[in-house]
Amino acid sequence: MFRSEKLRRAVADLPCAHCGREGATQAAHANLLEYGKGRGMKASDAALMALCADCHRELDQGRSMDKAERREFQQTMIARTLVRLIESGRLVLA
């Protein structure tokens, strides 16, 4: 399982990938089995989403999305986070 404190910190420095809020972002792990999510185990750090506390809570505990919408939301937020990491220069390929 991929773990990187440096990547988690870089993601937390981004604005929320959903609402754009700055200064309160968390590195949220995907809740999808294909990214290694399991009982008592967080998904890979390679599948992080930059979400503020409110958006993170809504994803994990909210009732505004059904299962399919939650899955699509996570995939979109992971992609947005990756794009922002690259465009901001926080993720550089060697």
Rank of each mutant, 00 (worst) to 15 (best):
M1G: 10
M1R: 10
M1K: 11
R3V: 07
R3H: 13
R3I: 01
R3K: 14
S4R: 12
E5N: 14
K6G: 02
K6P: 04
K6D: 09
K6A: 13
R8H: 07
R8S: 06
V11K: 12
V11D: 06
A12N: 10
A12P: 14
A12Y: 08
A12L: 05
L14K: 06
L14F: 03
L14M: 03
L14V: 02
C16D: 05
A17G: 15
A17I: 03
A17H: 10
H18R: 14
C19R: 10
C19Q: 05
G20D: 05
R21T: 08
E22Q: 13
G23N: 07
G23Q: 08
T25E: 04
T25P: 09
Q26Y: 02
Q26N: 10
A28V: 01
A28R: 08
H29K: 12
H29M: 04
N31Y: 07
L33M: 01
L33P: 01
E34R: 11
E34S: 02
E34P: 01
E34K: 10
E34M: 05
Y35M: 00
Y35H: 15
K37F: 09
K37D: 07
K37S: 09
K37P: 02
G40Q: 07
G40W: 11
G40K: 12
G40P: 09
M41Y: 06
M41G: 01
A43M: 03
S44M: 01
D45Q: 11
D45I: 03
A46N: 08
A47L: 07
A47F: 05
A47S: 14
A47C: 06
L48T: 10
L48I: 02
L48P: 15
M49T: 03
A50P: 14
A50E: 09
A50Q: 12
A50I: 04
A50K: 13
A50S: 14
L51D: 07
L51P: 12
L51K: 12
C52I: 03
C52E: 08
A53Q: 13
A53W: 10
D54M: 02
C55W: 03
H56E: 01
H56T: 01
H56N: 11
R57W: 08
E58W: 02
E58N: 14
L59G: 05
L59P: 11
L59S: 06
L59D: 04
D60G: 11
D60Q: 11
Q61D: 08
Q61Y: 15
Q61C: 03
R63E: 13
R63L: 03
R63K: 15
S64C: 05
M65A: 02
D66H: 13
D66R: 13
D66G: 14
K67Y: 05
K67I: 00
K67D: 13
R70I: 00
R70F: 00
F73P: 10
F73V: 00
Q74E: 15
Q74R: 11
Q75I: 04
Q75D: 03
Q75H: 14
Q75Y: 08
M77G: 09
I78Q: 05
A79M: 08
A79R: 15
R80V: 00
T81N: 12
T81C: 07
V83A: 11
V83Y: 09
V83R: 15
R84I: 00
L85F: 10
I86P: 01
E87G: 10
E87W: 07
E87T: 15
S88W: 11
R90I: 00
L91H: 13
L91K: 13
L91P: 12
A94H: 12
A94S: 13
A94N: 11
A94T: 07
A94V: 04
